[in-house]
Each structure stands twice: as C-alpha cells, then as structure tokens.
C-alpha cells in the first residue's frame, strides 16, 4: 500500500509538472492520438480490402491496438523514467537516486512522465469503448489486463536499459529493443511462424504484452490468466534483480548539479 501511495504522489507531481506547459502537453497528447489513429486507419483500409486474414478481422486488430496502446501508454505515462535509465547510467547520473529512501529503480522509473503516453492510453481506451464495443465482462478483463501488460513493458524497459551497466552506452540498444516490442505487439500473432513466436514469448515479450491479453479479452481462461500474472511478477522481480546486479558495478559520475 505504501508503495502504491508513493507511486500516486509521483504521478500527481509529474502530471502537475507536465500541465505547467499546457499547450505543449496537449500537443504531445494530440500527436500520439493522431499517430495511433493513422495506424488504425491503415488497418481499416486493409480489412476493407481483405476482410479476414488468418482468422483476424477488423475487431480483432482493434483489440490488439486498444490493449497495446493502453498498456504502452500506461507504462510510459506512469513509468516513463524506465526508458531513460541507460542514458542516466552512461552519464553517471544515478547518484541522486541512490541516496533516496525507496529502492533506486522505483524512483528512476516513476521520475518522469511521457505526455505521449497519456495520448496512447486515451486512444486505447476510446478505441476499445467505441470501436470494439465490448461487453461488461470484456471491459473488466481489459481494465485488468492492460495493467498487467504495462508492468511487463516497464520490466522489459528496465532490463534492456540496465545493459548499460555492462556495455557502457546502451540507450540505442534499449531503444531498438522497445521499438521491436511495440512493433511486434501491434500485429496479429498468427502472422508469425513458430520459431518467431518462440522469440516473441521470451526475448521480446510481445506474446505476453499483446497476444495473450487479446485472447483473454475475447475468451477468458484462468490458466492463461495465471500464467500472465506469473510472467508479470517474474519480469518485475527479474528486472529488479538485473538492475541491482548492475548497480553493484556502477561508478559515480561525481557530477555536481542543481536540482529544482
């Protein structure tokens, strides 16, 4: 509970900072909504011409995008700092977080909010409500599953960014890894062959971020739901373990800086 209250305080503070520049905040949110809208428009064009591909129709792809954008939006909207860890490690900028009372990784991930993430999440929720036209059961499943998917995305960002502890500079690798996860998460699972799916359920966890949640929203399965919760919990603990292992190798940047 204390951690949740801590997160809520950080989110509120980040939101207040972002809203200090309301026009810029609104522009970023709007830009992300347009970006997502263009992709859904592409799929609309596609399915107008080919109504069904590998059992997928427009409603299925809407679910893929609704869950994907909401989960990625929540992760970068609440924990946007996760994707900045590699750069902070490389510049020796972690010192500030090491002296704080809570675990440094927790401070790092919630230290920043990406307004584009808010746009993503708003788009995902609106798309789900208006284009997927869900039943009450689907809506409840959606609300739970996007939070679980978002936690897997945050864990993935922390793990890939932590490569910087060993590699020095890893922001480009982490950026590529996140781009790969986003791309694979926004296409239907059945497009990919078995070896590719094996990668998408392990190294690049698009399977757990998108494929399993989409299947669960359509048809609930307690077994797969338990697997998903287990994967999310394991990912969070695993990524924290990777970060902590890396942190033991970290050398201070000895930077003198003012923080407002």
């Amino acid at each position: 509970m204390a951690t949740l209250r801590f997160l809520a305080h950080y989110v509120r503070a980040n939101l207040e900072v972002a809203l200090a520049y309301r026009a810029a905040f609104a522009a970023k949110v709007f830009a992300m909504v347009v970006n997502d809208g263009i992709w859904v428009a592409f799929w609309w064009l596609f399915f107008e011409r080919f109504p069904s591909v590998e059992g997928y129709g427009f409603r299925q792809i809407v679910l893929v995008w609704a869950i994907g954008t909401t989960a990625f939006g929540l992760s970068s909207g609440i924990a946007g700092g996760a994707s900045t860890i590699a750069a902070k490690i490389a510049s020796g900028d972690l010192d500030f977080y090491l002296v704080l009372p809570k675990p440094p990784v927790l401070h790092l991930v919630v230290s920043r909010m990406d307004p584009g993430g808010i746009g993503d999440a708003l788009f995902g929720i609106a798309t789900f409500a208006f284009l997927a036209r869900p039943s009450a059961r689907e809506a409840v499943a959606f609300a739970i599953l996007v939070v679980i998917a978002a936690s897997i995305i945050v864990a993935y960002a922390v793990a890939t960014n932590s490569i910087a502890f060993w590699a020095g500079r890893a922001d480009t690798i982490a950026e590529q890894a996140m781009f790969g996860l986003i791309t694979f998460s926004t296409y239907p699972e059945r497009l990919f062959s078995t070896p590719v799916k094996a990668v998408l359920y392990t190294v690049v966890p698009a399977g757990f971020v998108s494929f399993v949640p989409v299947a669960l929203v359509q048809e609930w399965d307690w077994g797969w739901a338990a697997v998903l919760v287990g994967v999310a919990g394991g990912s969070l603990l695993g990524s924290k373990a990777i970060f902590d292992a890396g942190l033991r190798r970290y050398a201070s940047g000895s930077i003198l800086a003012m923080r407002g």
Binding site: F50, V53, E54, T183, F184, Y187, R190, L191, F192, S193, V196
Partner: peptide, 9 residues
C-alpha cells in the same frame, strides 16, 4: 513484419 503480413494475406 510487413513481409509476414503480406505472406499471410
């Protein structure tokens, strides 16, 4: 990804 999409299509 696009190659997978068009192959399936």
């Amino acid at each position: 990804v696009l190659s997978c999409l068009w192959t399936a299509t």
